[in-house]
Amino acid sequence: MRFYTHIAGALLLYITFTYLTDYSNLVFGIFFACWFSIFPDLMDKLTGKHRGFGHSIFWLVPFLLVGFLNLGIAAAMIIGFISHIFLDILTTHGCPLLYPLRTKDFVCFNKKRRIKTGTNQEKSALSFILFLIVPFLILAILTNIGYWDNPSEQSLAFASQSNTINDSPNAVKNNFNLNFDVDDDTNKNITVKKVDENTTTILINDV
C-alpha cells in the first residue's frame, strides 16, 4: 500500500488505542505512530528488497526493548509497525511476517478480493479508514481532556455555578462530596473530595 494509507491506518489504530487505554499523550504518540507506519518500507528501501527484512515481525523485539526506556514511545512505534503489517497482509502479495526464517507470505482474503496497491480499491480502503478516524478522534480527544471522568458531577457543577449567590461572602461556589464517618467511641473522620481545584474556602458546620 502507499505511504498515505499506512499513515491513515496507523492514525486510526493509535487513536483507538489511546481511547481504549485513556492514554493522555495523544499528539506525541500520533507523531511516532505515523513515522513508524512507514518504517518497514524505509527499511526495505535500504536493504533493496521490497517486502523483505523490513516487514518481518521480529522488528517487534527492539521496539519492545524501547518500552523499558519509554513505554509511550514504544507503544506508538509498535502500533505504527503493526498497522503497516496488517494493511500489507490485505494486499495481493501479502507480507512475509517470518522473514528471514520463512519467506512465505501471509495473506488475507480470497485472491480476487485482495487490495491492489495504487488502485481504486486502496483509495476506497483509505476513505473508509478516514471515515472511521473522525468519530474516534473526537472520542479520543474527549477522553484526553477527561470529559468522561465524571460527567454527572460536571453537569451538576455547572448547574450550581449558575445558581451561586455572588453577593454573599459565604456563598458555596463549588460542589463537594462529603462523607462523614461518625463514631462516638473513636476519633471523628471527615473526608473531603474536591471537585474543582480552584476552591479556596471550605465551610463545615456542626459535625
Binding site: 483507538t16 481511547y19 481504549l20 496488517f86 497482509i89 490485505l90 501479502g94 512465505k104 507470505d105 501471509f106 495473506v107 488475507c108 482474503f109
Partner: peptide, 22 residues
C-alpha cells in the same frame, strides 16, 4: 504459484475482538 499462508480467519477474529472492546 507461490505458497502462501492465509490468515483470514485470524484477522477476522482479531478485528472483531478489537471492535467488541471498542
Amino acid at each position: 504459484h507461490k505458497n502462501e499462508i492465509n490468515v483470514s480467519y485470524a484477522v477476522y477474529a482479531g478485528i472483531s475482538i478489537y471492535c467488541i472492546v471498542l
